[in-house]
């Protein structure tokens, strides 16, 4: 379990992380989402003990990272954005070094073999790291995070720079790791977090701006005041009926999508649910409602909305 309370990090007058709090439960995969420079890496660096916080605290499985860093670090496997690899070592030498560095007590050969099999690097086990492809280097980086079987994994942009096939493989791997580990995964790639994570924390300009699962976030932000409907009947009659519904402030015809039926977007005042009133009026006028859907925001829309970038555009 990871607990972050009122965490802040200042660089001079600039606040890289501004009073953020969140909790990651055991066995949860948390997506840490935000644009570049939002404070994701700084937060992760504080969690792993690489940086100190200016205020607030972070606990890994109940151990305060600042008060007892060595014990806290034992609980963590960390993959920084740039995998910390020694190019002059073979994969075997490197993982063996990490094993010794972390003072592991698990049986060495079988533990390293298990990790290599998990991240699929057995075929490059005796090769020099400098001769590996970017994808394999990333896997070796992930393997070092898994050495010692830490209960918490912190992965900073683990798929950056990989080709699509490698991205899918790494995502699948992280998803499977989530069954036995608590994982924080940072990314600015939206499909990645939606594909892998149980929950998303959105951070922007150092501040936490949203916390929930992808569906919840979409629902919260879109509500029921924006609908897309398909109604059979005369276009003008439908339009006048929709505009006559109380609290409706915008109606737009999207065209005839089926023979004799038109699609409309209906936008009501924020917080007003017009679905019942719409159904009642259509049934009174005998106009069949063929289709109705709340205009849920895509993850991209949510992201842009939360980080204010959509408004800027």
């Amino acid at each position: 379990m990871i607990e972050v309370q009122s965490l802040s990090k200042r660089y001079g007058s600039n606040k890289a992380v501004d009073n953020i709090s969140f909790t990651v439960n055991d066995g949860e995969i948390l997506g840490f989402l935000g644009p570049n420079g939002a404070g994701k890496t700084t937060t992760m660096n504080i969690l792993t003990g690489y940086l100190s916080s200016s205020s607030g605290n972070a606990k890994i499985n109940g151990i305060d990272v600042l008060e007892d860093p060595i014990r806290a670090k034992k609980e963590i496997g960390y993959l920084p954005e740039q995998p910390p690899l020694y190019p002059d070592m073979t994969v075997k030498e490197y993982l063996s070094f990490i094993y010794d560095l972390k003072k592991c007590t698990l049986p060495k050969d079988s533990h390293l073999a298990e990790i290599c099999s998990l991240v699929k690097i057995e075929n490059v086990y005796t090769r020099l790291i400098k001769n590996l492809s970017k994808g394999y280097k990333q896997r070796v980086g992930l393997a070092q995070a898994l050495v010692g079987n830490p209960r918490v994994l912190i992965l900073d942009e683990p798929t950056v720079g990989l080709d699509p096939k490698q991205i899918i493989e790494i995502r699948t791997l992280i998803k499977s790791l989530g069954k036995n580990h608590t994982v924080i995964l940072s990314s600015h790639i939206l499909p990645e977090v939606s594909a892998v994570c149980d929950r998303i924390v959105v951070i922007n300009k150092g501040k936490l701006v949203a916390d929930g699962n992808p569906e919840e976030l979409s629902k919260t932000l879109s509500a029921d005041h924006r609908l897309t409907v398909r109604i059979e009947g005369n276009e003008r009659n439908i339009y006048s009926l929709l505009t006559s519904i109380p609290n409706v402030n915008a109606v737009r015809c999207l065209g005839e999508k089926e023979a004799g039926a038109f699609d409309f977007t209906v936008e009501a005042d924020e917080g007003k649910d017009i679905r019942r009133e719409l159904f009642k009026r259509l049934s009174e006028r005998g106009m069949p409602l063929l289709y109705s859907k709340s205009m849920e925001m895509s993850l991209e829309d949510i992201f842009l909305n939360l980080t204010g970038e959509g408004q800027a555009e």
Partner: peptide, 14 residues
Amino acid sequence: KQKTDQLLLTSPVS
């Protein structure tokens, strides 16, 4: 330079 200090400083070593 190689950013491996991140590995050493986040390992359980004083």
